[in-house]
């Protein structure tokens, strides 16, 4: 059993890595928004957006296929749209053998569009994570006026996540070590197993609650007064303005062209 949540950041000396995290966050969001605003079936626009991502990955010295290789995480959700070709009215392109459902052209186009949109959006978010440290991303969120308590809570989650995951994995190992079963004997009842898992969760909750008290005490000892202060980590440079306006302008032009088509 492993749930290694390897940090996605890849440390490289590149132009993309050196950009201000605010610029990277805004461009990533604008990029994903553009992807979801491109009309159905404008394949050229999707190809262009994919090309931009690939070039950016190259520019960031990640290797051209960095995001492509990791981009299949959203794939299981495709099940939610898989019925579209058969439910959207339109000209029947082909029929499934045996069952005889007809797949319509309009349905296939919409299905492929949804697939492309989610696939490209996931790659954009991955590039952001590969080129930006998570604390820098949080700082950018704070700088872009996301409420400070919320940003701090997310920062604390990130700080203690790996610690608590370690505790959870030790509990799971302890359970496995005590769960020997002779071949041929029946499995324990599901309700009993659920109760055991629940006890582990309850135990982890108490440990976390106590840890949060200790953390709070330690913060008080260091002069915490209820507000979080952050340093000005990044300076906005001309390069950031340039990159931001280039990407935003390009995306806007692409959107207009795709709609005027």
């Amino acid at each position: 059993m492993s749930f290694s949540l390897a940090a996605p950041f890849r440390d490289r000396l590149s132009v993309v890595h050196q950009l201000d995290p605010r610029a990277k966050l805004v461009t990533t969001l604008a990029f994903i928004l553009t992807v979801s605003l491109i009309p159905e079936g404008v394949w050229g626009a999707f190809a262009l957006l994919f090309l931009i991502l690939t070039l950016l990955a190259g520019l960031a010295r990640l290797g051209l296929t960095y995001a492509l290789r990791r981009s299949f995480v959203a794939l299981p959700f495709v099940l939610a749209a898989v019925a579209l070709p058969f439910t959207v009215p339109g000209r029947i392109v082909f029929r499934l053998p045996f069952v005889g459902w007809g797949a319509s052209e309009a349905g296939l186009v919409r299905f492929a569009t949804i697939l492309l949109r989610s696939w490209i959006a996931v790659q954009a978010a991955m590039l952001l994570n590969a080129t930006t440290r998570f604390p820098d991303l949080l700082w950018a969120m704070h700088a872009l006026r996301v409420p400070q308590p919320l940003v701090s809570i997310v920062a604390f989650l990130h700080r203690y996540l790996f610690l608590l995951l370690g505790e959870a994995s030790r509990m799971l190992r302890a359970r496995a070590a005590r769960s020997g079963r002779l071949p041929g004997t029946p499995r324990p009842a599901v309700v009993w197993q659920g109760r055991t898992a629940g006890s582990m969760v309850g135990n982890l909750f108490l440990r976390s609650l106590e840890r949060s008290e200790r953390v709070y005490d330690a913060m008080l000892a260091r002069g915490y007064d209820g507000t979080s202060r952050t340093l000005q980590w990044f300076r906005w440079r001309t390069a950031d303005t340039l990159a931001l306006s280039l990407v935003l302008g390009g995306l806007a032009a692409l959107l207009m062209l795709a709609h005027l088509r």
């Binding site: 701090s152 809570i153 997310v154 920062a155 604390f156 989650l157 990130h158 700080r159 203690y160 996540l161 610690l163 608590l164 995951l165 505790e167 959870a168 982890l204 909750f205 976390s208 609650l209 840890r211 949060s212 008290e213 953390v215 709070y216 913060m219």
Partner: peptide, 12 residues
Amino acid sequence: PMMGVLAAFIFA
């Protein structure tokens, strides 16, 4: 601190 650590708890 409490919300942050408990969010990490739910995640774990």
